Simulated scan of single mutants.
Amino acid sequence: MKGSVRVLLHLRVAPGEENRVEDLYHRVSRELEGTPGLLRNELLQGLAAPEEWAVLSEWRDADAFRAWESGPDHRGATAPLRPYQNREAGSVFGLYEVRAEY
């Protein structure tokens, strides 16, 4: 779907914290259900570096993501995962527009 947007939130999860992060991810995802423009999201764990995790969300378009990001619910909804943000990754998150897909 050309024009859709993927947001990749970089996380760093210490050994022993995996279950907590999964629980927080589910909590945040339930809170975000029904958010206009949010199509889906996934929790990912690195295979080569198991401490590197990411949340990949898919949005209808950049405008939908930016409207949610600048709205009043953004910070509160995502607060539980904030301590796990990987600030060593350069940017805490990346915003990517889909240019082509099969």
Results as ranks from 00 to 15, higher is better:
K2N: 12
G3R: 10
S4Q: 15
V5G: 01
V5D: 03
R6S: 15
R6N: 13
L8N: 06
L8T: 11
L8Y: 13
L9V: 15
H10Y: 15
L11Q: 06
R12T: 12
V13W: 14
V13A: 07
A14M: 15
A14K: 15
A14G: 07
P15H: 05
P15N: 11
G16L: 06
G16N: 15
G16K: 15
G16Q: 13
G16W: 08
E17S: 14
E17P: 04
E18F: 08
E18I: 06
N19M: 14
N19H: 14
R20M: 05
R20F: 01
R20C: 01
R20P: 00
E22V: 11
D23M: 12
Y25N: 03
H26E: 13
H26P: 08
H26N: 13
R27I: 09
R27E: 15
R27P: 00
V28P: 02
V28R: 03
R30S: 14
R30P: 11
L32T: 08
E33M: 10
G34E: 15
G34D: 14
T35C: 14
T35L: 01
P36G: 11
P36W: 10
P36R: 12
G37E: 00
L38F: 12
R40N: 13
R40Y: 09
R40T: 11
N41Y: 10
L43W: 05
L44K: 09
Q45N: 08
Q45T: 05
G46T: 12
G46V: 08
L47K: 01
L47M: 01
A48D: 10
A48H: 09
E52C: 07
W53V: 03
W53N: 04
A54I: 07
L56I: 02
L56N: 11
L56G: 00
S57R: 03
E58L: 13
W59R: 02
W59H: 04
D61H: 07
D61R: 02
A62V: 10
A62R: 12
A62Y: 11
D63T: 07
A64Y: 00
F65Y: 11
F65G: 00
F65M: 05
R66S: 04
R66H: 10
R66E: 10
A67W: 05
A67V: 08
S70H: 09
G71R: 02
P72I: 01
P72K: 03
P72M: 00
D73R: 13
D73L: 04
R75K: 08
G76D: 08
T78V: 09
A79W: 02
P80C: 00
P80Q: 03
L81W: 03
Y84V: 04
N86A: 11
N86R: 12
R87V: 13
E88I: 02
A89L: 06
A89G: 05
G90M: 05
V92N: 01
V92P: 07
V92H: 03
V92E: 12
F93I: 02
L95G: 00
L95P: 08
Y96L: 08
Y96M: 06
E97L: 01
E97C: 00
E97F: 01
V98N: 09
R99D: 05
R99F: 06
E101C: 00
E101N: 07
E101D: 04
Y102G: 13
Y102H: 14
